[in-house]
Simulated scan of single mutants.
Amino acid sequence: MLAKMIEDHDTIRGIAATLRGFLNNDGAPIGPLFASARWTLTRHLLRHLATENLIFRDNASTARHATKPDAPDPFEQRYRQHIDSWTPERIDSHWPRYCRELGSILNTLDQRMAFEEREIYPRLTLGATALAAA
């Protein structure tokens, strides 16, 4: 299961790198390739976060949310709000602002994944809930 979680991170990193490539463009490239990368990240990331939530709930003393294992994940909330608020039209109209916001989210995501791999994953015990989610 941990190998799958790290594999997810690698996939998410690859998608994030694709998105960063679009952010380096001068104009808003809201086309099929950008939209596909954006929604592919969303699909992979939200599935991964849901699996993590199950694992972390089973490992409350180890996970980030040790004091409140059922508390909402602030990063997930931030990402969902980002996706909800940035429509293709809004992205086109405010491309530089969108680039800054998405860049910040991707940087936070990179830091989060590195922290999890270094500090959390090595300490996890996979219980029945996590194994059922696999």
Rank of each mutant, 00 (worst) to 15 (best):
D8Q: 11
Y79Q: 04
Q111I: 04
G14P: 10
L109K: 11
F56G: 05
D8C: 03
I6D: 06
G21D: 03
P29T: 04
R78L: 14
S61P: 07
R90S: 03
R20G: 07
P29A: 05
E7Q: 13
S85P: 03
K4Y: 11
L2H: 11
T67G: 01
A134R: 09
P74L: 02
I120D: 09
T108I: 13
D73A: 03
A130E: 08
H94A: 09
L19S: 12
H48S: 08
P72A: 06
A35N: 08
F75P: 10
I55G: 10
N24I: 01
I6N: 06
F56W: 02
E89N: 07
L102T: 04
D10S: 14
H65S: 12
A35Y: 05
T108R: 11
R64Q: 13
Y98S: 03
A35C: 05
H94S: 09
I83T: 13
I15Y: 12
R78D: 03
P72W: 00
Q81C: 12
G14Y: 02
W95G: 03
A63E: 07
L49A: 12
A35D: 05
F115P: 09
R64T: 11
R13L: 10
P72R: 10
L124G: 00
A63N: 01
H82K: 02
A66T: 14
A16D: 12
A63P: 07
D26E: 04
A66M: 15
R97T: 00
E116W: 02
L106F: 02
I30H: 09
A50W: 04
R123I: 10
G103C: 02
I91L: 04
I55E: 04
D92V: 15
F34K: 05
L46V: 03
F34W: 10
S104Y: 06
H44K: 14
A128R: 06
E52N: 05
D84P: 08
R13H: 14
R47E: 10
T129R: 01
A28W: 06
G103K: 08
D58T: 00
L131A: 08
D92M: 15
T108D: 14
L2A: 13
F56Q: 00
G27M: 13
R20T: 08
K68I: 03
N25K: 15
R64I: 10
G103V: 00
D10F: 14
L45C: 09
T42G: 03
N25D: 15
A3N: 14
R112T: 12
A28R: 00
T40I: 14
Y121W: 13
R123Y: 04
G27P: 04
G21C: 03
